[in-house]
Design a protein around this nucleic acid. Structure first.
Lengths: 205, 205
DNA sequence: GTCTATAGCTAGATAGAC
DNA sequence: GTCTATCTAGCTATAGAC
């Protein structure tokens, strides 16, 4: 993460918080500045303009996504010795536990902006739809190659099914957290989701 | 549907179109007026204020959702004589085919506003999450009672699985349509989704 | 890097003539 | 029901003193 001066970081934090609650167009530079305890014009010593803040959010979110990619070595070990459904349960629950309030807020901003802003839309497509599904598909293929799951299934579709449910549950979580709730229910939901899919994928008998 | 004067309808149409592309906060009353071919102040002869337009969108969306509820008698007939998976395939494809550009745009507006506007959020929860899942669950229970699907499954979870995939695919569709695409791919995706779930639910052998 | 001051514009909304 | 005119408030952004 690029080093930020105290003020710049403060502005950024306040902006993320306000954007996530009122949308990018619902927050003025003025309000961000006052929220950060400085005058409006001082913002421009830290960000070129309002859009520059949004772009920084995109960059920061991307870094966050890259950073929390699961360890590949660890995963291979898991595939060898754990039940298939346990691996995905762990994967999903790890995501939920490793979330920070910052990542939640950035995700919300990007989800809101996706229909307006091309860059946001690309982020959703890449980091919330394609990349996760690709990743799940790769894991499933490894599992199938090792004979851990049935091999008569379209694993791309299975990967997308895993991601549909995961995304649905995480969206729920983001809303719940925004409203002051917690993530206990979500763990159960993720577990049920994984179970449902793997009842389908695991070998019968 | 309440009768609208020509101008009011024109304003409403333009507003839906602009809100769906730029968000509620990204469109001014002025721009809507000019888009509708009238002066800004004339808007206020048709809507009390900007928010009144948004509320009318909510009302109109709700009417649209109620209106396209599937026929109950027809459904019972289908459950008796069609394969379980065909019923859901039909249900989902009917939705896709019956969509209008207006409904798509209103859905997009509500999806965008859900994190900002409490009323929008309630709409999403009620009409996109809870009500569809309840409906699917009821159908599945009827199927199970008639011995058409396995009875060793939590049907609430199955109903939610059906809805996660459906919502994910529909969201994809809304984006694709906004970008000028069509819905041919989507029909296949919905079909794959239903197949995946019913491989799990239908009786073995 | 912070501030004051201000430019220049756009916003939502109203008053009142026709 | 439409218009012109106008109000007030808010907006992004810059200039320049400290």
């Amino acid at each position: 993460m690029k080093r930020l001066s105290g003020t710049r970081e403060k502005i950024f934090d306040v902006a993320i918080d306000m954007f996530s609650r009122h949308g990018y167009n619902g927050v003025s530079v003025r309000k961000i500045a006052y929220g950060a305890g400085i005058k409006e014009s001082s913002i421009y010593n830290h960000f070129r303009n309002k859009e520059d803040i949004l772009n920084h959010i995109f960059d920061c979110f991307q870094e966050g996504m890259q950073a929390q990619k699961p360890d590949q070595k660890e995963l291979e070990y898991e595939i060898e010795f754990m039940a298939p459904r346990e691996i995905f349960r762990l994967l999903f629950i790890k995501y939920v536990k490793n979330r920070t309030s910052r990542i939640d807020k950035m995700a919300l901003i990007i989800l809101m902006e996706q229909y307006i802003n091309q860059k946001a839309r690309n982020f959703v497509k890449e980091f919330m739809l394609k990349e996760p599904a690709d990743y799940y598909e790769a894991i499933l293929r490894t599992m199938a190659a090792k004979g851990k799951i049935r091999d008569d299934t379209d694993l791309r579709i299975a990967a997308e099914e895993l991601n549909y449910g995961f995304m649905g549950i995480i969206l729920d979580l983001l809303v719940a957290v925004q409203e002051g709730g917690d993530h206990t229910v979500v763990i159960q939901k993720l577990s049920d989701h994984v179970d449902f899919v793997f009842e389908r994928l695991e070998k019968q008998g």
